[in-house]
Each structure stands twice: as structure tokens, then as C-alpha cells.
Nucleic acid binder design. Structure first.
Lengths: 224, 224
DNA sequence: ACAAAAGTGTTTTCTATACACCCATGG
DNA sequence: CCATGGGTGTATAGAAAACACTTTTGT
């Protein structure tokens, strides 16, 4: 059988820093859409699976180390790529703040973080892909604790709260939010505090992944 | 660029009849896995999108008219197909009981419904695909009213209940279930009854799709 | 008349929400 | 000492869950 369908992967990678949720974009070097911003991604090689392809492309194009990766959707419209029939498997990913600084490795000078509310025009159907990824992320944080994946290993509780208020675009009652979070027992309060500028120093917390997997196995679902 | 990756689509189609949830399988005519049972599906043609490919394959192989179709996941492991590198976009679908009778059209004699608990050995990684589809369906009926898609236009309430108890594999309190369902106002009670064998005749209900879309737009979420 | 399935309300428990003041630090 | 952000508890309302008997038909 003759096959003229090409397969690519694309990633919508979210990062959090200082109260802002950003997405990682790369500037295209070649046609089509030369010099336009696009999601990192590219053609899948014959001897790698889809996750390997994504990780290779991310590392080649951005140098970012991904922390959480999940398949999003496969886009197969006929005219989505001017080069011909290209089907793309999209992923969405989260990175921790320490990965937020783009390393100057490889082609990193062509990668940049953009605030999710002020994206430039995107190549191909990447706007549509981004939109779906954002909706997925917004939905997902309400029933799975992936908010942690955007934070450092140790974080003050207020950072977690900020991830939620920023993504859900609404205020959250701090007391109720903490009550619910703590009742799940997936957060460990550490004997450590940080003081960021003025104000009372904040206790640091860490995410107890073991406890989370146990809960998940028992079928108990997180819900905000 | 040379591309030796092939793209297929596969469908996990569920049907409901007489208290049983079944899946549609086809018997393979050719190698590999000749004579083994497999999910309906096949290669995507260059001039059709993914949904068109699935619908074409389903109609060619089974003659079944699909009622609800949703993309499930894309499977891209290296060794999933002995013919070489084949990536498959899997869908899951639901059919109404009137589509349950397999038409003798096309290759229909090679298609058959199997109870979800007693599937034969499946070709390729189709077992894995099926498992994911079943989990998705089980999760999905708890937050979207897709249970209706498995029933006729008019149905007794007990049929809906049976779909839920069968899929969720647990008993449901009939009064509480009805209360919740009716409070959503997506069910219209008709001035019509049916009597199935012995017992009190049941009122028929229909699903109010318009009302459902309105609710969805308003962000109100169904939850069982 | 009895077996079989449909239909129907109330009480209790739990969870979600609303809400305001004190605490610890840096400047 | 004051500005800034962190930390905490209770009361109310609404939703979920538990629970059993009556109705209508076919045989």
C-alpha cells in the first residue's frame, strides 16, 4: 500500500512563573510559515514511539525538560498543512519552574515563553491545538492534582492557590481550598519556611505522590 | 522526507441490548492475524479525514450506523503491528439498538457482537485499545449523558438505569437516580407506555438534546 | 391471587460554601 | 509601627445517600 500521509507530533507545554501561566513556542526557521511562531514539534521517525518523538523535538528545539506529558488529541484534517497530508498527534505538557529558564542549548534562541492570554499568531492549526490544550488543563486541575507539576518540589501553599486562580480565572476561598486540599492528604507540610520579601513567611509543602497513586488506585477522585 | 509510517483508524463500538453491553468485532480475512477477531478499522486514505476513514471502514466491514463517535487515543508503539510501523488513531462509538442487528450487507457476515465480559482473543494491541475504551465509557457516563446514545429514541426509564448499573457494575438506588436525572430536565416523559411481558407497564421517555446542549453551554455539568 | 416490574417521599448525613480576624515578618 | 502576605474556624445551606411500600399489569 502506498502511503503519503505524514505523521508529526506537537506539544503544548505550560509553565508557571510568578503568577503567570505561559506556553512554550518556537519560531519556525523554514517554510511553510517561516518566522511564524508555532508549537514545538515535528515529524515522527520510524524507529521511535510518539512520546520519544515529542521528547526529542522538545529537547532539540527548546532544551526544556518536560515534567508531565499527556496525549491530547490527534488532528487529521485534510488541509491543516500546506505541505500535504500531515496528521499530528498533539500532547500537552507541564514543566517545573526550574525548567522555565530556556537553556541556550541547541536552537534554544528560537524558543520563547508566551503568556497564555497574549499569544502571537500561530502557524498551521496550532491555535486550535493550543485552545484544546488549555481547556484540557483547566478541566484537569479540577479533578487531578496536576497543579503540582507546575511547581517546584517544595512550594508555599499560596503558589498552588495562584496556579488554580490563574487557570480557572476565578477567586478561590483560601480557607475552603486549603481544607479540601489537606483533606486529601496528598500534601505534606514541611518543617521549613520561606520568606519572599515582605509578609509572614510561608510554610513549604511537598506533593506526596505515593499517597496520590494509592488514592487513585482506590478509586478516590480529587475534586476542586 | 521519506515516510514509512502507516496510519490506521480503529473503532471500539459499544451496543446495548437486553441488559448487556456488547462490542462489535470483525474476523480478519487476511494476514497478519488471519481469522482472529479484531476491532473494525483500517488504513486512512489520503483524501479523507480521520472520522471519514472510521465511518467508511465501519460501513464497509460491519454495515453498522454509528450514533456517537469520539476520538479515544492514538497508539504508536513500535511493535504493535507486524507489518511495520503502523500508528492507529482509535475511536469509540455507541450505536442504538436498531443498529444492533447486523445487516447482511458487504462483509457483514464477518462482524459480530461480543459481550464485553467474554471477548475472544484480539489481534494486534486491540485488547489494550478495548480496555481503554471501556474505561472511558464508564467514566464518561458519570458526567455526560451519553447513556442515551445506547438507547432508542423512546425508552423506559428502567433501560437507562440498566445501562448505568451494567456499565458501572454496581447497584443504583432507583429513586435517587431518577431524582437526579429528572432534576437535569434532559428527559421528557411521553404520554405513552409500553408493557414488556409481565409487570406494570412503563412510561416512555425521550432525551431532550436541545436542553442538554443548552445546559452544556451554560457550563452545568451532569454528574451521577 | 400472585409474581413481576414500575413508581413514588422523607429523613439523615455529608459536603460545599460563605464569611473575618489575627500572625509573623520586612522595611 | 505599619504594610504585606500567611494562616486559621464556624455556621448555614444544599446535595447526596439511605431507606420500603404501593401500583399496575400478565399469567
Amino acid at each position: 500500500m502506498e502511503n503519503t500521509i505524514q505523521l508529526t507530533v506537537d506539544a503544548v507545554v505550560f509553565g508557571y512563573e510568578a503568577g503567570n501561566i505561559s506556553v512554550l513556542l518556537v519560531k519556525r526557521k523554514y517554510e511553510p510559515y517561516q518566522n511564524a511562531w508555532a508549537l514545538p514539534g515535528g515529524f515522527v521517525l520510524e524507529n521511535e514511539n510518539l512520546e520519544q518523538a515529542i521528547e526529542r523535538e522538545l529537547s532539540e528545539e527548546t532544551g526544556v525538560k518536560i515534567n508531565y506529558l499527556e496525549q491530547l488529541y490527534t488532528f487529521g484534517d485534510l488541509a491543516r498543512d500546506p505541505r500535504g497530508r500531515v496528521v499530528s498527534v498533539a500532547y500537552f505538557g507541564l514543566v517545573k519552574p526550574n525548567a522555565f529558564q530556556l537553556q541556550a542549548s541547541t536552537d534554544a534562541e528560537l524558543a520563547e515563553w508566551f503568556h497564555i492570554d497574549t499569544l502571537p499568531k500561530l502557524a498551521f492549526d496550532h491555535k486550535k491545538i493550543f485552545k484544546m490544550a488549555l481547556e484540557r488543563l483547566q478541566a484537569k486541575i479540577t479533578y487531578e492534582p496536576i497543579g503540582f507539576e507546575l511547581l517546584d518540589k517544595k512550594f508555599p501553599f499560596s503558589d498552588l492557590e495562584k496556579v488554580y486562580t490563574t487557570l480557572l480565572r476565578r477567586e478561590i476561598d483560601r480557607r475552603n481550598f486549603k481544607k479540601k486540599m489537606m483533606s486529601l492528604k496528598v500534601l505534606d507540610e514541611l518543617d521549613e519556611k520561606i520568606s519572599i520579601g515582605r509578609g509572614r513567611p510561608a510554610s513549604l509543602f511537598s506533593f506526596n505522590q505515593q499517597r496520590y497513586f494509592q488514592l487513585k488506585k482506590e478509586g478516590i477522585i480529587f475534586e476542586i
